[in-house]
Design a protein around this nucleic acid. Structure first.
Length: 674
DNA sequence: ACGGATGTGACA
DNA sequence: TTGTCACAT
């Protein structure tokens, strides 16, 4: 459900940039012969010509539509060129489009905060850039304005349609213009420039919307395509929304939009104006009600998230109809393909962006033929993610088997009751950047555990080499984990420091030792998954029963504990170490956005992120201690091997973690002992 | 049981 | 928090 966020009082300049029929453009760049010809991109050519997932504008003129079949498209437009999505491992592989999207993002991120909204869409917060421009170069004094700017569509400008370059110029340079309009004008100039850069550097065209918030910018970017831009002035909003069908509004394209029509007889966004906020809240809940009320007025406080990289990676495939997978063996075969693709993408993310994913999730759609009634859904399952195709595969298979048992009910394996899997997908989430800076190591041994079976302490060299790197612009992220060991489990909240994505994203350079090492380690497919390994990762991530590996359920709780203890010292030390955070100031540098919102002088309370972030600072501090404050004698009581490892870690770190009570070491350092 | 593959965000 | 659902391209 949509949620309403408070809108900052100051006016922002937000742009939404949308690539025109992106996949088609990617294919046309690859094969220029296709340029200017009716073209569509299709996947799985075998059945009815495959399904269209992108249609070029020449083909659209002939009535070709997305989600037509290739055959239908041919009927409507016999000359159409159908290009197939690349296939790898028996499934569609969108890599080339993702990479092309990254090219675009790296250009668009040059001005202002940038949010990758999808593979081919981006939001930009150009407020600062626009304000700066307005200060430095008064619009009236502008000698020449790029044609791309003059081609803008300005909502509300009367003569939008005819020889309007002059009127656009006039609007842009209007001396008596509203300050907000002037900022919009600057935004339009900036966006036009960015779009031209995109075109020069990638050969891709895109369209854009410029407005005072995300919702309106998004709406505008789609109004004049392809290769054009649209500006939403405040004055135009009312009229714009008045007649806009609710379904056109983002978030209202589904059930909520339908029920608006059905329940309230609301057909256009303007129709919503009649309803009080309370009334809308009564119908749809507080959050959605408020959101609807605001939306009707063109109010939307959603901020542009500074995020250039995806938050998850997934690989999936459908098996419709008779192609449904009916045996575990068939499922395993496909899981292997999916996991290999996922692993490749994780690898690439690690090398390019120095990020590590921490959770593996399996999603399945299935049917039960012997299922007269209960349309039970196949449950999705997660577990800690270990790097390496073999390990991911193994874990995914285990997740599948666990979920299958649940799905089929307690009467498990009796007679292969007809089930069929119609969709399989694996996905990796909880991706965090490996901190660049002193604290790399903390993050790092997380990866070490997942990448590597040996207990060779790889961390050391990173400490040494990273130490002189300034930990600039780090941001604190809260996280909490639990681990079992000893009699009970104690959840600990702690900080993860990670490098700012805005800095590292899209840099293809120097992978660095961490990434290289990781690559070596995970390229191997050795997947001797011993009990101990499972325990180890269970502990690392570990959420008792929920986050453990499916297999673990078979063993008793005591057995698990035992395995955990035996596994070893180095892991325990890691946890210990990880709890040794350095000073709060260093660990929790003020997030950039917080700084910004404060400097804007907002009278409103700190935004939610800021609040929770400062809360986490407190929580973290309560549970943290400094390594160098630990009594030396305490360390000396530890086994020699542990002492050594411990001393290796003697540097201020912060990292995600778990503390175990009952473990001898945890006893020593348990902050408050509860 | 063909709108496929993928991704984000909210809610319980 | 995990798992589910909705929504989007």
């Amino acid at each position: 459900m949509p949620v309403s966020r408070p809108e900052s009082s100051d006016s922002r300049i937000i742009a939404h940039v949308d690539m025109d029929c992106f996949y088609v453009q990617v294919e046309q760049r690859k094969n220029p012969d296709l340029r200017g010809k009716p073209t569509a991109v299709v996947q799985y050519n075998s059945w009815k010509g495959g399904g269209l997932i992108a249609v070029g504008y020449e083909a659209r003129k002939d009535g070709v539509k997305r989600s037509m079949r290739g055959d239908e498209a041919k009927e409507v437009c016999p000359e159409i060129h159908l290009v197939q999505v690349p296939v790898a491992r028996g499934k569609a592989d969108l890599t080339i489009y993702r990479d092309a999207g990254s090219e675009v993002v790296s250009i668009l991120a040059r001005k202002g905060r940038c949010e990758r909204a999808s593979i081919d869409e981006v939001y930009l917060d150009l407020t600062d850039a626009a304000e700066t421009m307005l200060k430095e170069t008064p619009l009236e004094s502008l000698e020449s304005i790029d044609d791309e700017v003059l081609k803008s569509h300005i909502l509300g400008l009367s003569s939008d349609g005819k020889d309007d370059r002059e009127s656009v110029r006039e609007w842009l340079q209007r001396k008596d213009a509203d300050h907000r309009d002037k900022l919009l004008a600057c935004g339009a100039i900036i966006v036009a420039e960015l779009r031209l850069q995109v075109l020069r550097e990638t050969e891709f065209t895109c369209s854009a919307g410029v407005a005072h918030n995300k919702m309106l910018a998004k709406l505008a970017s789609g109004m004049n395509k392809p290769a054009q831009q649209t500006i939403v002035t405040s004055a135009s909003v009312k009229e714009l929304l008045e007649t806009l069908p609710v379904k056109k509004m983002k978030q209202l394209g589904g059930k909520l939009g339908s029920s608006l029509q059905t329940d309230l007889g609301v057909n256009t966004v303007g129709d919503l104006l009649q309803f009080s906020e309370e009334k809308l809240q009564d119908f749809y809940g507080v959050n959605t009600g408020t959101w609807l009320w605001n939306t009707a007025r063109g109010i939307n406080g959603d901020e542009v998230q500074g995020r250039l990289l995806p938050k998850s990676h997934g690989s999936g495939k459908t098996f419709p109809g008779v192609r449904a997978l009916k045996t575990v063996v068939a499922v395993e075969k496909w899981l292997k393909e999916l996991c290999e693709e996922l692993n490749e993408r994780l690898q690439s993310d690690l090398v390019k962006n120095k990020r590590i994913a921490h959770t593996l999730t399996l999603y399945v759609n299935a049917y039960k033929s012997t299922d007269t009634e209960s349309h039970k859904k196949f449950p999705s399952k997660s577990c800690p993610l270990r790097y390496g195709a073999g390990k991911i595969m193994e874990d995914a298979v285990n997740l599948f088997q666990a979920a299958l048992r649940e799905y089929l009910g307690p009467y498990i394996g009796n007679q292969c009751g007809g089930w069929g899997v119609t969709n399989l997908s694996v996905s990796a989430s909880k991706i965090v950047a490996i901190p660049s800076g002193t604290s790399s190591i903390t993050k790092y041994f997380h990866s070490r555990d997942q990448l590597n079976d040996s207990s060779e302490p790889l961390g050391e060299k990173f400490v040494l080499e990273d130490d002189h790197v300034s930990p600039s612009r780090t941001e604190s992220h809260p996280a909490s984990h639990q681990i079992e060991c000893g009699e009970e489990e104690i959840p600990i909240t702690h900080d993860i420091s990670s490098s700012d994505q805005c800095e590292t994203a899209c840099k293809d350079e120097a992978s660095g030792d961490i990434a290289e090492e990781a690559f070596k380690l995970s390229s191997g497919t050795e997947s001797c998954s011993t009990l101990k390994q499972k325990e180890q990762q269970s502990r690392l991530h570990g959420k008792e029963t929920k986050m453990m590996h499916p297999n673990d359920g078979i063993r008793s709780y005591n057995q698990k504990r035992k395995a955990t203890k035996e596994k070893g010292t180095s892991s325990i030390l890691r946890f210990l170490h990880s709890n040794s955070t350095s000073s709060p100031k260093q660990d929790n540098p003020t997030p950039l956005q917080e700084t910004k919102s404060l400097s804007l002088g907002t009278q409103e309370p700190l935004n939610i992120e800021s609040q929770s972030s400062s809360q986490n600072v407190q929580t973290t501090n309560a549970w943290s201690y400094k390594v160098d404050e630990i009594d030396q004698s305490v360390i000396e009581e530890l086994p020699l091997e542990i002492q050594q490892e411990f001393r290796n870690w003697l540097r201020p770190q912060k990292r995600p973690n778990i503390v175990k009570r009952g473990s001898s070491i945890a006893h020593y350092f348990s902050p408050t002992k509860n």
